[in-house]
């Protein structure tokens, strides 16, 4: 069942954030169809090393499709051709002998390239910091079952919370928009009672930060949904729009003096 593939890889190489990058062609031989895509790159890197060349830098960690660290634009598609699959879960049996594979980093102004295929996604952290939480200190919590959450709401919240923060939505969007990412978090909280107290503030603050980071806007192309390895749906974006619309009527900027006292 296992077969061996000979492939031509065209990989984006870029020394550093400021450096000029370009696609470099590497032939690879005898890649097992059982190997994962990243293992294929491991093999390439071992060979580059033997030849005294610098290995290709790429992000990865869990290699199980959950940490969101891996990325890669593979033949023009985020995380490769499979739906709801991360690059680390993509396997080489998906490719044919003789294929040429173009591998590029995520591209967006808000995701600057650090090196080769590695980009900086800290913009996402800053968006979460703006409001992607329920403000509850340790020690404040009541008994867990005092908060009842209907199964349907809990399921919808979980669907949205499944986002792995990989950035494929941004990378695949023609506008490099982060709407799906923000929408997933806003929806997660909007579906739960725990998210209600800060519901409007959250929508306003997260969207403001998203804009400030330089992500593009949503033009309802829905490429993000197809690209998302965690199956987040664009209905969350509609939800975010709704939350934002409501909040822009309901939410008045709080006075600065209310925080940081005492």
């Amino acid at each position: 069942m296992e077969k061996k593939l000979n492939l031509t890889l065209k990989i984006w190489r870029q020394k550093g954030p400021q450096a000029q990058g370009r696609l470099v062609t590497y032939p690879v031989q005898g890649v097992s169809t059982d190997a994962s895509f990243l293992e294929m790159l491991d093999v390439l890197n071992e060979e580059l090393l033997k030849k005294g060349e610098e290995p290709v830098a790429f992000d990865h960690d869990c290699r199980e499709g959950i940490c969101g660290m891996c990325s890669l634009m593979i033949n023009g598609q985020t995380h490769g051709p499979d739906r709801e699959t991360t690059t680390c879960q993509l396997h080489m049996r998906r490719f044919k002998d003789g294929d040429t594979i173009v591998i590029e980093p995520w591209r967006a102004k808000s995701f600057p390239i650090l090196k080769d295929l590695v980009v900086d996604r800290t913009a996402f952290d800053r968006v979460i910091a703006a409001g992607g939480y329920a403000s509850v200190n340790v020690g404040n919590a009541q008994d867990a079952n005092c908060i009842l959450v209907g199964k349907e709401s809990a399921d919808r919240a979980m669907d949205a919370a499944a986002c792995i923060g990989c950035g494929a939505c941004v990378a695949s969007c023609k506008n490099a928009s982060a709407m799906l990412f923000v929408a997933a978090k806003v929806t997660h909280f909007a579906e739960l009672p725990q998210g209600q107290p800060e519901r409007y503030k959250r929508a306003q603050a997260m969207v403001a930060q998203m804009d400030a980071e330089g992500f593009g806007g949503c033009t309802n192309t829905y490429e993000c949904e197809a690209a998302c390895p965690a199956g987040i749906q664009v209905t969350t974006i509609a939800k975010l729009n709704r939350e934002y619309l409501k909040s822009s009527f309901a939410y008045a900027e709080e006075s600065k003096s209310s925080e940081g006292e005492g």
Partner: peptide, 8 residues
């Protein structure tokens, strides 16, 4: 604590 934070 986790429920209060919104863990689904």
């Amino acid at each position: 604590q986790c429920v209060a934070q919104g863990v689904p």
